[in-house]
């Protein structure tokens, strides 16, 4: 009972957004909870009035690029932390930990200047590359790599396999579930980014869908709530689906990363 009520309260805003996206203008103003007919008119109108498709495509590209970049960089770094012994490794590890203490927002002004001077404003490069390195993802994978028996590494040493080949041929296939978890997490976070895209894009061709929402909300269509909610639905649908598909995995992965 408590479960049902709290469940409904928690999802109500989301559900309501879906319902409103099917309503006609008058229904919204009357405050109905259920649309009379499920009309797709609002969706058509949303795609019509803002370049939603371009925004969605940009968001997809940005998210996929960030996801791929993070997977590559984090797994490379985690591999070095677990399987390559060298002088100064500890020190670099502390350097990685220290990055978690710097709030990204505190660095946004110089970062904006850097991206500007690189000519990366309004480009995928500017939207993605600053986020490729991630301490959390590195730690998560490092934890996972550590569960690989060291004998596996020693056996390939005896067989004379190179480190790179051990990395691609053994480590990556063995931890592919955790890689998937990290991929989901990366994608979700990247898709939902707001402040940075707001700073580094200022034209419609390069905007991501989150900024598109801000645009919808501030333009004259803001009073047309049905259309705005149709936009909201288009934004949240991909991530909700991804979340529902990967919820269990995400939960396990995040817990692992959180607790040592």
């Amino acid at each position: 009972m408590t479960l049902t009520v709290s469940g409904l309260v928690m999802v109500f805003p989301i559900l309501y957004a879906f319902l409103i996206s099917f309503m006609q203008g008058g229904e919204v103003l009357q405050g109905s909870l259920w649309p009379e007919t499920f009309s797709l008119a609002n969706f058509v109108s949303a795609f019509d009035r803002v370049p939603l498709l371009t925004y969605l495509w940009n968001s997809l590209m940005v998210s996929v690029l960030i996801m791929a970049g993070q997977l590559v960089l984090c797994s490379l770094a985690a591999f070095a932390f677990v399987f390559v012994e060298f002088k100064g490794r500890e020190w670099i590890f502390y350097l990685f930990i220290s990055t978690m203490m710097i709030p990204w927002e505190a660095t946004m002004v110089p970062n904006f200047q850097t991206v500007q001077s690189l000519g990366w404003l309004n480009s995928y490069a500017g939207l993605t590359i600053p986020f490729f390195a991630m301490a959390f993802g590195t730690f998560l994978l490092r934890q996972q790599f550590k569960t690989i028996p060291k004998e596996l590494y020693e056996a390939s040493q005896i067989a004379g396999i190179s480190k790179l080949r051990f990395f691609t041929g053994v480590v990556l296939p063995v931890v592919k579930t955790t890689m998937t978890t990290l991929a989901i997490y990366s994608f979700l976070t990247a898709w939902n980014m707001y402040l940075w895209p707001l700073l580094v894009t200022n034209n419609e061709a390069n905007r991501t869908v989150q900024i598109g929402l801000k645009q919808m909300q501030t333009q004259e269509i803001a009073s047309d709530w049905g259309v705005v909610m149709a936009g909201v639905v288009m934004v949240i649908l991909p991530t909700l689906i991804l979340l529902f598909a990967g919820q269990k995995r995400l939960q396990e992965g995040l817990t692992q990363g959180a607790l040592k």
Binding site: P149, E151, E154, A155, Q157, I158, G160, P173, V174
Partner: peptide, 20 residues
């Protein structure tokens, strides 16, 4: 000499088989 240069084979307690 590195392990691979010693031309030997080794069997581990946990077998060290590649699971994939």
């Amino acid at each position: 000499l590195s392990p691979s240069e010693r031309d030997l084979s080794m069997v581990f307690q946990n077998y060290a088989l590649y699971p994939h």
